[in-house]
C-alpha cells in the first residue's frame, strides 16, 4: 500500500495568556474544548498528520506559555519553528495590541523564512467583541499574513487555519523538498536539517523530532 511521504513541520502558537492557544491546539488535535483556563506554564506540543496536495505532512505543534514573565524563555523556541500562529482574542483589545510586540519578537528570533498566520480567536463571543474583523484584516495585510477568525469553542475555522499555515510552510520549503527528492543518498528532511541547529548548545536532547 501507499507509503507515507513524510515531511515534518514545526508550528508554533504565540499570543497573550488566555487568548486560547491551548484550546485551539486541543480542538485541532483531539477535537475537544475545555472552558476552564489552565494557564500553560512551559511548552507543550502535539502531533497531527495532514494531507496537503497528496503529501502527508506531519506537524508538530508547539503551544507556548503566553504569560509575560515567561517570554524571555519562550523566545528561544522560535528558532525551530517553520510556521507561527499569532493569536489574539477578539474580546480583548489588549491582546490585539500586543500582536505588534509578538511580531517584532518573531522578526528578531524566528528564522527568516518562517510563515505566519494571524488568528483572532473566540469569534463565538460576538457580544463581547472589542476588535473588529476589519482591524484584524488590516493588521494582517500590513504584515502580509493570512488572517482567520476562529473559535475553538464552536470549531470555527480551526482546520482551515492550521491547514493554511501548513500549506504556506510547504510552499516555502518546496524547493528544499524537491532537492531532497532527487538526491537519493541524502536521506534528509527539513526536520533533520533543523535538528542540526540546536537551541541549546550542549543540551542536545532538547526536543527531538524523532517519534519512533
Amino acid at each position: 500500500m501507499a507509503k507515507q511521504y513524510d515531511v515534518l513541520f514545526r508550528l508554533l502558537l504565540l499570543g497573550d495568556s488566555g487568548v486560547g492557544k491551548t484550546c485551539l491546539l486541543c480542538r485541532f488535535t483531539d477535537n475537544e474544548f475545555h472552558p476552564s483556563h489552565i494557564s500553560t506554564i512551559g511548552v507543550d506540543f502535539k502531533m497531527k498528520t495532514l494531507e496537503i496536495d497528496g503529501i502527508k505532512v506531519r506537524t508538530q505543534i508547539w503551544d507556548t506559555a503566553g504569560q509575560e514573565r515567561y517570554q524571555t524563555i519562550t523566545k528561544q523556541y522560535y528558532r525551530r519553528a517553520q510556521g507561527i500562529f499569532l493569536v489574539y482574542d477578539i474580546t480583548s483589545e489588549r491582546s490585539f495590541q500586543h500582536i505588534m510586540k509578538w511580531a517584532s519578537d518573531i522578526d528578531e528570533y524566528a528564522p527568516d523564512r518562517v510563515q505566519k498566520v494571524l488568528v483572532g480567536n473566540k469569534s463565538d463571543e460576538q457580544e463581547k467583541r472589542q476588535v473588529a474583523t476589519e482591524q484584524g484584516n488590516k493588521l494582517a495585510k500590513a504584515y502580509g499574513m493570512d488572517f482567520f477568525e476562529t473559535s475553538a469553542c464552536t470549531n470555527h475555522n480551526i482546520t482551515e487555519s492550521f491547514t493554511r499555515l501548513a500549506e504556506l510552510v510547504l510552499q516555502a520549503n518546496k524547493k528544499d523538498l524537491e532537492a531532497l527528492r532527487v538526491s537519493i543518498n541524502d536521506k534528509l528532511s527539513l526536520a533533520d536539517l533543523e535538528e542540526e541547529e540546536r537551541v541549546c548548545g550542549s543540551h542536545d536532547d532538547v526536543q527531538k523530532a524523532c517519534w519512533c
Partner: peptide
C-alpha cells in the same frame, strides 16, 4: 509516489 517517499523517508518514521 511511494518510491519518492522512500527517498524522503526519515528513518525514524519507518515504524510508523
Amino acid at each position: 509516489v511511494s518510491n519518492k517517499a522512500q527517498m524522503l523517508t526519515m528513518p525514524q518514521f519507518g515504524l510508523r
